[in-house]
């Protein structure tokens, strides 16, 4: 059967976890696997042992949306894969989408699973903020934007010696990389916290954050939040958990009024124990939580404070 291509993502000289997750997904679909790297990452092709072949698509080692998309297109044209896996990430959005348009092939976003007989593919996608699971099909070459969590990064991390070849895309300079900016340290580094109380939209208003802070004081936790609270300016960016925020692995993660969109879950799913309190019993957060309460968060938190104080 025609093969599977994985467009590898890297940051600061290391392949990202999503790269190994995609290699694991490719391995489970089965068939010849080709990994595509950019810049100097070809030197680390030995880490991509699940792949039979590695194509170095050139470009700078620092990500560039235009030249990476162009390099990826050259790689696809040289290899004719049946499925192309691209990360459903900030970097992947600007590679996978132009690739689909420029090759004239279908694309499925937010994939949590892919199956294929080599010609006909079935994609499972998480849509509507994780509230719906959608199955879609496509025939012939197609692109899947893979969500973090779709594969097992540890299983995809296999050393080996795939054969190495090279293609080059167009040299484009309409978009120019300037610099990487590390996050502000903030007052608290939530990636080091042992207990986190994370609040989401369900908290209601800015003034209501106080009750979560009160509970945090009682159980010696740090306050974190989902994206909307940062966008609203209620909490600093350094407190944001999720895809574009921090990835945290505390011993205990208490989610208050967080529905559990895939972007949030990506940042906290590896916490040792997750407790979710949300009035919507269908909230996707209950999928990843170990314990859940489908109750009004204010009632629960007030009672917790009273009992634990």
């Amino acid at each position: 059967m025609a093969g599977i291509m994985v467009i590898c993502e890297h940051l600061a000289g290391e392949f990202s976890d999503i790269t190994f997750e995609m290699l694991d997904v490719a391995n489970k679909i089965g068939g010849d696997i080709t990994a595509v790297t950019f810049g100097s990452m070809k030197e680390k092709s030995g880490e991509l042992g699940i792949a039979n072949n590695v194509i170095d698509a050139g470009g700078d080692t620092e990500y560039n949306p235009e030249s990476y998309a162009s390099g990826a297109k050259a790689a696809v044209e040289s290899n004719s894969p049946s499925i192309i896996l691209v990360a459903s990430t900030s970097m992947g959005y600007d590679i996978g989408n132009p690739l689909a348009v420029n090759l004239g092939i279908p694309l499925a976003s937010y994939c949590t699973g892919v199956s294929s007989d080599g010609t006909n593919h079935e994609f499972t996608s998480s849509l509507y903020g994780g509230k719906m699971s959608v199955t879609s099909t496509a025939a012939g070459p197609a692109i899947a934007l893979m969500l973090a969590g779709a594969g097992d990064a540890d299983a995809g991390r296999v050393s080996g010696s795939p054969s190495l070849s090279q293609v080059s895309g167009e040299s484009l300079d309409r978009v120019r990389f300037k610099q990487l900016i590390e996050p502000d340290a903030g007052d608290v580094d939530i990636t080091q916290s042992e207990i986190i109380i994370a609040i989401g939209r369900g908290i209601g208003g800015k003034d209501d954050i106080e009750i979560a802070e009160e509970l945090a004081e009682v159980i010696d936790a740090d306050i974190a939040c989902s994206r909307p609270l940062v966008d609203a300016g209620w909490l600093p960016k350094s407190r944001q958990v999720g895809k574009s925020g921090m990835k945290v692995k505390p011993k205990l993660y208490i989610a208050l009024g967080i529905s559990g969109a895939p972007e949030h879950i990506e940042g906290m799913k590896d916490s040792t124990t997750i407790i979710a309190i949300n009035s919507d019993e269908n909230a996707p957060i209950f999928d990843v939580a170990h314990y859940g309460m489908a109750e009004d968060l204010f009632d629960v938190v007030e009672e917790l404070i009273d009992e634990l104080e």
Binding site: I105, P106, L107, A108, E122, F123, S126, G130, K131, M132, S133, V134, T135, S136, T137, A138, A142, A276, E281, N282, A283, P284, F286, D287, V288, A289, H290, Y291, G292, M293, A294
Partner: peptide, 21 residues
């Protein structure tokens, strides 16, 4: 778009969590 939706469902919820009363 080339992709055809063939099924939509609510993901199984509460699958992971032990729900407390």
């Amino acid at each position: 778009s080339g992709t055809i939706i063939t099924a939509m469902s609510e993901p199984e919820t509460g699958g992971g969590a032990k729900m407390l009363d």
